[in-house]
Design a protein around this nucleic acid. Sequence first.
DNA 1: GTGCCTGCAAAGTGTTTGCAGTAGA
DNA 2: TCTACTGCAAACACTTTGCAGGCAC
Lengths: 157, 157
Amino acid sequence: MSVADKNLAKEKFMHFLAHKNLRITSQRQTIIDVVFSTDKHFTAEELLEWSRQRDKSVSRATVYRTLPLLTESGMVREMDFGKDYKFYDPNYADHPNHNHIICQDCEKIVEFESDKIEEIETEITKRLGFSIKAQRLQITGSCEELKKLGACKKKGC
Amino acid sequence: MSVADKNLAKEKFMHFLAHKNLRITSQRQTIIDVVFSTDKHFTAEELLEWSRQRDKSVSRATVYRTLPLLTESGMVREMDFGKDYKFYDPNYADHPNHNHIICQDCEKIVEFESDKIEEIETEITKRLGFSIKAQRLQITGSCEELKKLGACKKKGC
DNA sequence: GTGCCTGCAAAGTGTTTGCAGTAGA
DNA sequence: TCTACTGCAAACACTTTGCAGGCAC
């Protein structure tokens, strides 16, 4: 995702806030700057840490209160791999149809797209009568390092 | 899943316990009976409730300590839909490749199978070099009742 | 000035665990 | 007998919330 795209997403989010009569406080500004300056997937705790590096006054509560706004706006996607904590994906705005594979050891997350998912959706709609709101294919597996070495050197790469 | 299949799964699980030198206590027996007498997906809390109806002495701790054994044996599958609690699927032994669609209102869960998922897995393995351990395609949508009435009458059907 | 927003700390929720007594094999 | 197993309650980890003061607009 290019810098220009990132800035566009950021701007859209600002509009989203304005539209809902929500204020752009300095803490929110910091959090937004952080989110829209990375491609990395992150956890709430990581977002707090990164934000505090720029502005000590950002609190855990504000991070947790801002994350739902980010997901509601569609600029960030929440991901749940069945771990205790959730991951957030800041690349969602540009690629709303991608899915994820996570390494079971180092938790490296790789994105991918596949037309076949849409095909499955069509199949489901016809067969079961559900209309589909959201779909997420989340795959757990071994990255190449884990396969070769039996363990990954660093976590959360 | 037929009654015969259920009993087979139950028997397999007993073997699994015996093989690991684990005991069949009366509480475990109750939990096992409950699990292998339903087709329904359930939560830990529901399993506790149902078990207590048969035997008051079953505690929450024992339920939580037994669930990992059930999943480890392959007779039950753990499912995570991003809700606070996990669901467990007792129909996994017979249909190890099925996936789930959950209604966003009443949380009704419907199972389905599709060859396309395997195709996606093959694609991933080739393209990204990951080997796949587990996959969960989780679809959220509206069941027919929700589509027609705008809301579902009962939750957790 | 209005009321949304903040940090703090306490509360909440699903799940796990230490302990001392219990019971299966 | 020998230990795995049990219930209980406290502990846990992540997330949410009540409150009193603060700040964007």
